[in-house]
């Protein structure tokens, strides 16, 4: 599992992904960790197949007992089907996920971990020394969907927005936006159902100060590529299957 530090300040953001041992037919995913002095948040910790390499990678940065918070942007298996295993591993953790998905996510096994339901309007995750914002992103693509914004690190973890389907071992940052567009087009047109939801999200996100836009699949965007992505996404027609 490749580990890339994307923010270093009073705390760190680390991106995990590009696992070379990943079974061929499961989609590649990016997992993110926010590491403070004594706590740790895992953002979209991944599918059950990824649990062992993911936790092994996390153990380079934090002990198990300091993994105190998990966040699931939505209910898909590549996001959080590992929940039942984290539930056995973490003695004092919380899962922050949509109120709407609680009854669904509990199917994965959630008896030790405390489920903290996120209302539709979003909320915050307080990690003691820093506080992250939970930004609504409903219908992008799931009916209850949230992203994480860190105003200090200026990072927006954008779930499936900005995602691309790429070959294994691809770089972690977009290096040529124009060439990257075709890797994102079908994903956004087919998985994102609503132009109205897309516009609402863009209006909200344009007000945020973002250095890095970090999706759950493919490459991250930094600097001017963030604005380029927002412009491209705004012009794109989504929900093309009907």
């Amino acid at each position: 599992m490749r580990m890339t530090k994307i923010y270093e300040g009073a705390y760190q953001w680390i991106m995990f992904g590009r696992d070379v041992h990943k079974p061929e037919k499961i989609i590649d995913t990016n997992q993110y960790m926010v590491r403070t002095a004594n706590r740790c948040l895992l953002i979209d910790p991944g599918g059950i197949e990824l649990f062992a390499p993911m936790l092994a990678a996390v153990l380079h940065h934090a002990p198990v007992e300091e993994i105190t918070d998990l966040f699931a942007s939505h209910q898909d298996p590549d996001i959080i089907s590992s929940l039942g295993l984290w539930d056995q591993a973490l003695p004092n953790a919380k899962l922050h996920a949509a109120t709407l998905w609680e009854g669904f996510l509990r199917h994965f096994g959630c008896e030790t971990i405390e489920y903290v339901p996120i209302p539709d309007h979003g909320g915050v995750i307080n990690l003691g020394t820093t506080e992250l914002q939970i930004v609504p992103a409903h219908y992008l693509h799931a009916s209850a969907n949230f992203h994480i914004y860190d105003p200090h690190a200026k990072i927006l973890m954008s779930g499936d927005v900005g995602a691309a389907l790429e070959a294994p071992g691809t770089p972690v940052f977009v290096d040529n936006f124009d060439m990257h567009v075709e890797k994102m087009r079908f994903f956004h047109q087919r998985w994102m159902p609503s132009n109205q939801a897309k516009r609402a999200w863009i209006d909200r996100v344009r007000k945020l100060d973002i250095d890095i836009l970090a999706p759950q699949h493919g490459r991250m965007f930094k600097g001017d590529d963030v604005k380029r992505f927002l412009d491209w996404f705004e012009a794109l027609q989504v929900g093309i299957a009907v």
Binding site: F51, L55, A56, A57, L59, H60, P63, V64, G84, Q88
Partner: peptide, 29 residues
Amino acid sequence: QRMTEACRRFEKVGQLAVGARYADSLATP
């Protein structure tokens, strides 16, 4: 079944985390 699966996966983590700074913290779970 869930706990058996967890044991199996934790053992796998142990193999993959050799050399990791906090690998020992998995022993208690």
